[in-house]
Design a protein around this nucleic acid. Structure first.
Length: 812
DNA sequence: GCTGTAGAACTTTTT
DNA sequence: GTTCTACAGC
């Protein structure tokens, strides 16, 4: 059943009523539902209504299990669509789930809550905006907006950016929220942390005053409402019989706490419901942004999960690739334990190659790609993966020189582009004149004679009156004040017109009246920007049409505030419950609808859009390993497999870091279906200087029988390090690594065998540190892993550094 | 108020 | 080596 069928059924709403009637023509769809599932998948799909953890290995049909489970619940278990919530991390995943589901069943997906954590929280807060103490049309700050909001705060309160870098503060605030901490909950140790918490507090007040929320706030506030309002909580606990979670290993603390709110406690007098969590601890690669693999264990113990199923049958790769992945990941110690298997045969060996430099590496990859294409491979089935973005440049230019089409993932997304942000800022001001972030963004863009001086005056006035910028405009005297007033008048005029026209027309109006379009037309390289603005008009137009068809994808822009389920029985119970309670008002959603403009702005904030420029073209795919998660290709190149790069040097200081790097490598390997190529270079240009690297330790963790060395295998990490068995051994690895870097750095690219232990530093020696620059060793203390050195840096003064951690290079 | 130049950063990233 | 940010000068 295709999309058109789905829309038809959704629009006529026949299925909502008749879907399960015996006469229904689609009643036999379910017969084929479970067809083709293996035993493990079948067991998972048909588990009873209890909490379950599904350990789904790479390529094991995870999404299929999730969607089939939902379909099975709807059809066989007669669960109402309104009783199901499915949570993902990315819009892409949510969309895919929705699409697959509607292809599987002629069901109205709209009643279901399928979406990202943030999308669902947004939906929740819009529905309960009064309880949430937010304006109904609250706007969402993306990462850029959040940073500029913090910087604005710094100006206003004279906070020193050198002392508390705004970026770091942003990270701090985000981190607190992810842990579920309000300013009052953050432990304060010293004056510095006191100040940070104060800034956090000020930031919160500013957001509240302006009626905006950041991403973390969407989650945190939703969580707090559920936690603090038993009636609201019980309403949703009653409603959602089944909660399905994708990529569970990537959940942070707050997301886990939020999920748990949906599970009734003993004595809550709410019927039992079930969380069906799908995840893979071996693919947990987002600890750096707060993901807690530990949530998997906590989930099992705290909710007494009785059902755990491992999906270990892989449908993607040949066994040489799979065995490599299995062998590699077995070197991690903290695992739930899983071993992928395949029926596909061994396939080609994994090819390994060593090259003299990054350029030669790129050249080699390009040569191989040419061969693959000659042999009939589609270019889009070839992926080049790397650990960090900086590595793409050499590869890009080499591909370019050979006229091979390629596509780089990452970079700016559509809604993050400056010109789009400017346009959105105008649109936001139409919706909420008190949005100071947007006000400042465009008050003088395009330039209209409002300078920094004027704005300072304005901000002073606003601060002393404790008002929004827009309300302080009259207080600025003279020409400057007049300019400001005319800006505000212009916005007001647009707002007035906006009431009577379509969303598309509003966007066009703003682009014209603001002067944005004009500005970019006159700019030398403005053609792309003009095109993007035109694209924004198109986006607005199609957004309207989506609304018109009542299609609700992952974005949750369709604000279906009917939190009370449409299913007979359930809705009665919920309504009854609400009616019986004294504070029914807070339980039931505040059912007004959002204006199309506000909905569009929300959509823009929650879904930053594509960043793939030339999509659709048959091009070689370039991306970081992180970006490759969830994708698969016939041919995969993993480049830059060198110590310091992959595993990345910044991760080597702690054990968890190395294990995460290994999981990252595991993810990279398991992207390949047929052919896998691993390459490393002896030298590489990084940060403007040539670095000499030895091959990654990960090579020593792969089974020799699966590999084919294109260039001779030479001494590597394990050979040079006695006692290394592919396992992390405290800090010796790093000090050894430094020795090699020093030795190799002195000229020979040949791998050096470990000579003598220790750091090799002496008093009076000149050393170089990547952060602090040059300095002189003044004192040495301790030995081995505890060795420390006192170094006098010419630029940064005297510092004590732990030699097992700090990266020092002697200068001669 | 805009433009050019010096200085600093620089792993990975979704919402 | 590149790229973004911040401040000084026109």
């Amino acid at each position: 059943m295709g999309h058109s069928g789905f829309y038809n059924s959704a629009m006529s709403s026949i299925f909502d009523d008749d879907f399960f009637a015996p006469t229904d023509p689609m009643a036999n769809v379910g017969d084929t539902l479970l067809h083709g599932l293996n035993d493990e998948q079948m067991r998972a799909v048909t588990l009873p209504d209890e909490h379950a953890l599904i350990l789904a290995g790479a390529g094991s049909g995870k999404t299929r299990v999730l969607t089939t489970r939902i379909a099975w619940l709807l059809q066989q278990q007669r669960v109402s669509p309104g009783g199901i919530m499915a949570v993902t991390f990315t819009n892409k995943a949510a969309k895919e789930m929705t699409a697959r589901l509607s292809a599987m069943l002629p069901i109205n997906v709209r009643g279901m809550w399928i979406g990202t954590f943030h999308g669902l929280c947004n939906r929740f807060l819009r529905a309960h905006y009064k309880v949430a103490n937010l304006p109904q049309g609250f706007q969402i700050l993306d990462t850029q907006d959040q940073l500029s909001a913090i910087k604005r705060l710094y100006k206003q309160f004279n906070i020193n950016d050198d002392q508390f870098p705004a970026k770091q503060m942003q990270w701090f605030i985000g981190g607190c929220k992810e842990e579920g901490q309000r300013p009052g909950d953050v432990p304060v140790r010293d004056a510095e942390s006191r100040k940070k918490v104060d800034i956090y507090q000020l930031y919160e007040e500013q957001c509240q005053r302006e009626g905006v929320v950041d991403f973390g706030e969407l989650m945190l506030r939703s969580y707090e409402i559920l936690r603090d309002h038993p009636l609201v909580r019980q309403h949703y606990q009653r409603r959602f019989r089944h909660i399905l979670v994708d990529e569970f290993q990537d959940t942070n603390r707050l997301q886990y706490l939020w999920l748990k709110q949906f599970v009734p406690e003993v004595g809550d007098a709410v019927p039992r419901n079930a969380i069906f969590a799908v995840g893979d601890d071996d693919q947990s690669i987002y600890a750096f942004r707060g993901a807690r693999v530990g949530n998997m264990n906590d989930f099992v113990t705290e909710l007494k999960v009785q059902h755990q199923i491992k999906l270990e049958q892989n449908y993607r790769s040949y066994s040489n690739i799979l065995d490599s992945a299995n062998a590699l990941i077995s070197h991690n110690t903290r695992r739930l334990g899983k071993n992928l298997r395949t029926d596909q045969g061994s396939g080609e060996p994994v090819r390994v190659v060593e090259l003299p430099g990054d350029l030669a590496e790129a050249q080699w990859i390009v040569d191989e790609i040419k061969q693959l294409v000659r042999d009939g491979s589609a270019r889009k089935e070839i992926a080049i993966l790397y650990r960090s973005n900086a590595q793409s440049r050499v590869i890009e230019s080499t591909l370019f020189n050979h006229a091979i089409p390629y596509r780089v993932y990452g970079g700016l997304r559509f809604f993050e582009r400056a010109e789009i942000k400017h346009a959105l800022a105008y649109l936001r001001l139409l919706d909420n004149p008190r949005d100071d972030t947007s006000f400042l963004r465009v008050v003088n863009f395009p330039p209209r004679g409002i300078g920094a001086r004027t704005l300072e005056q304005l901000q002073d006035a606003a601060r002393s009156g404790n008002t929004a910028l827009v309300d302080a405009v009259q207080q600025v005297p003279g020409k400057a004040g007049a300019n400001l007033a005319s800006f505000v008048a212009k916005i007001d005029a647009m707002r007035e017109q906006a009431d009577q026209i379509t969303l598309k027309e509003i966007v066009e109006l703003v682009l014209d009246n603001s002067g944005l379009l004009e500005h970019y037309r006159n700019e030398r390289d403005g053609a792309d920007r003009v095109e993007n603005l035109q694209e924004l008009v198109n986006a607005a137009e199609s957004f309207v049409s989506l609304e018109g068809f009542g299609k609700e994808s992952a974005g949750m822009h369709q604000l279906d505030t009917s939190a009370a389920p449409a299913w007979p029985g359930e809705s009665d119970a919920a309504a009854q419950d609400a009616a019986n309670s004294a504070s029914a008002a807070e339980v039931l959603p505040d059912g007004e609808t959002l204006s199309p403009l506000a909905a569009f702005l929300t959509h823009a904030a929650l879904e930053a859009g594509d960043n793939q420029a030339q999509a659709g073209q048959d091009a070689v795919q370039l991306m970081t390993v992180h970006a490759a998660k969830g994708l698969e290709f016939n041919n995969v190149f993993i480049s830059g497999l060198e110590e310091g790069l992959f595993p990345h040097e910044n991760s080597l200081n702690d054990y968890d870091g190395l294990e995460e790097e290994r999981r990252l490598m595991y993810v990279a390997i398991t992207r390949a279906r047929q052919r896998l190529y691993l390459s490393h270079a002896q030298t590489r240009l990084l940060h403007g200087q040539t670095r000499y690297n030895i091959r990654s330790r990960f090579f020593d963790e792969l089974p020799e029988e699966c590999l084919k060395w294109i260039t001779p295998k030479r001494a590597g990490f394990a050979d040079a390090m006695p006692g290394y068995e592919g396992r992390w051994g405290g800090n010796q690895g790093d000090s050894w690594n430094r020795d090699v870097r020093q030795a190799v750095g002195q000229g020979s690219a040949e791998v050096v065998r470990k000579s003598e232990p220790g750091h090799g530093l002496k008093k009076g020696m000149r050393v170089f540190h990547t952060k602090f620059g040059e300095g002189t060793v003044q004192m040495l203390e301790g030995s081995g892993a505890d060795a420390k050195a006192q170094i006098n840096f010419s630029r940064h003064g005297v510092k004590w550094l732990a030699l097992s951690v700090a990266k020092l290079t002697p200068i001669d």
